[in-house]
């Protein structure tokens, strides 16, 4: 059985194609496990996994927790808010505690870019980044890629466009790294004021016209607009955003070929995507959720059973 080249999954930046292929191929096996009446395998029996969530994300935590339990791992959940840095223990204290508790694996979500890397360099456990600020969210990108591959048969040569707030999106960044590695053609689309500098150097083509982007691609990944943060600051209003970039039935109906619609959730209906699209035939948003558990099982399994 082949192994991953790395002991941790902090991001998809620099992860070789063989590793991604191994994860996606293993996902097929675990998806099959999820179809069984008894959805549990003893793979990680005796291993302890801590879900360390410094930032609320019920969805991602539940998905990881399901994956861990179905692999028979012992699961501990730790949630802490980092709204106040001055209050409570520091990340360094956390690192020392994890080290003392002899945890096998840590799944970590944090609002600060690089926080997972910070703990990884100070602990001996194996780490999975479940989202660090605007940096990476590798398992989300893997489940997106898996979903596209399953629907379209391949990633090689497939045109994928990520639409929305690219500058503040860990989902966008991880998807770009992974998709480019897998030979897909990647584009990003959104207001130029939400486009990070030099994004094209990562191999992504840039669209500012959503209709042009839709005409070009085979699959779109529609990002959630952070309502509270951006309206008024980086673009004029949610109404204008919906009219300029929103994925509507009218926009999709006018296309020459169908487009697969992904969304990492949670959805702002009527903002970045209309309900008719999110619930329509082109959407694979619920399969993404199912695939997410299987992808996370694959990652946990491959890292948890990897020998040095």
């Amino acid at each position: 059985m082949s192994q991953l080249s790395t002991n941790h999954l902090l991001g998809l930046d620099g992860v070789p194609r063989e590793d991604i292929e191994l994860i996606l191929n293993s996902t097929d096996t675990f998806l099959e496990v999820l179809e069984r009446p008894v959805k549990k395998v003893p793979t990680l029996q005796g291993k302890t996994v801590v879900n360390l969530f410094f930032e609320n994300s019920t969805r991602t935590r539940i998905s990881f927790e399901l994956a861990e339990r179905r692999l028979s791992a012992d699961v501990v959940n730790f949630s802490a808010s980092t709204s106040s840095v001055s209050k409570g223990e520091t990340l360094l204290d956390t690192a020392r505690n994890i080290e003392a508790m002899k945890v096998d694996m840590v799944v970590m979500r944090h609002a600060a870019a690089g926080a997972c890397e910070f703990l990884r360099t100070r602990c001996t456990s194996r780490f999975i980044n479940a989202g660090d600020g605007s940096h990476e969210h590798p398992t989300q990108a893997l489940l997106d890629m898996y979903t596209i591959r399953k629907s379209l048969g391949t990633l090689e040569g497939v045109n994928v466009c990520i639409i929305g707030d690219i500058a503040h999106s860990r989902v966008a960044l991880s998807n770009i790294f992974g998709l480019v590695t897998m030979g897909a053609n990647v584009a990003v689309c959104g207001p130029p004021s939400l486009m990070p500098r030099h994004i094209e150097k990562l191999g992504a083509r840039v669209f500012t016209n959503v209709d042009e982007a839709l005409g070009w691609c085979d699959a779109i990944n529609v990002l959630r607009i952070q309502l509270e943060r951006q309206a008024g600051a980086s673009f004029p209003s949610l109404r204008e955003y919906r009219n300029t970039f929103g994925i509507t039935v009218e926009r999709l109906d006018g296309l020459a070929k169908p487009v697969l619609v992904l969304h990492p959730g949670p959805i702002n209906r009527g903002v970045e995507i209309d309900s008719e699209v999110a619930d329509g035939a082109a959407a694979v948003i619920l399969p993404q959720v199912t695939n997410g558990v299987a992808v996370r099982m694959a990652v946990l399994y491959l890292l948890g059973t990897k020998t040095e």
Binding site: D13, A113, G114, D132, G133, S134, H135, E136, R170, L173, P196, R197, H198, I199, K201, L202
Partner: peptide, 11 residues
């Protein structure tokens, strides 16, 4: 702000 801040996800 530049290529590296984009890659590292830092403001």
């Amino acid at each position: 702000e530049g290529y590296m801040s984009t890659v590292l996800g830092l403001p």
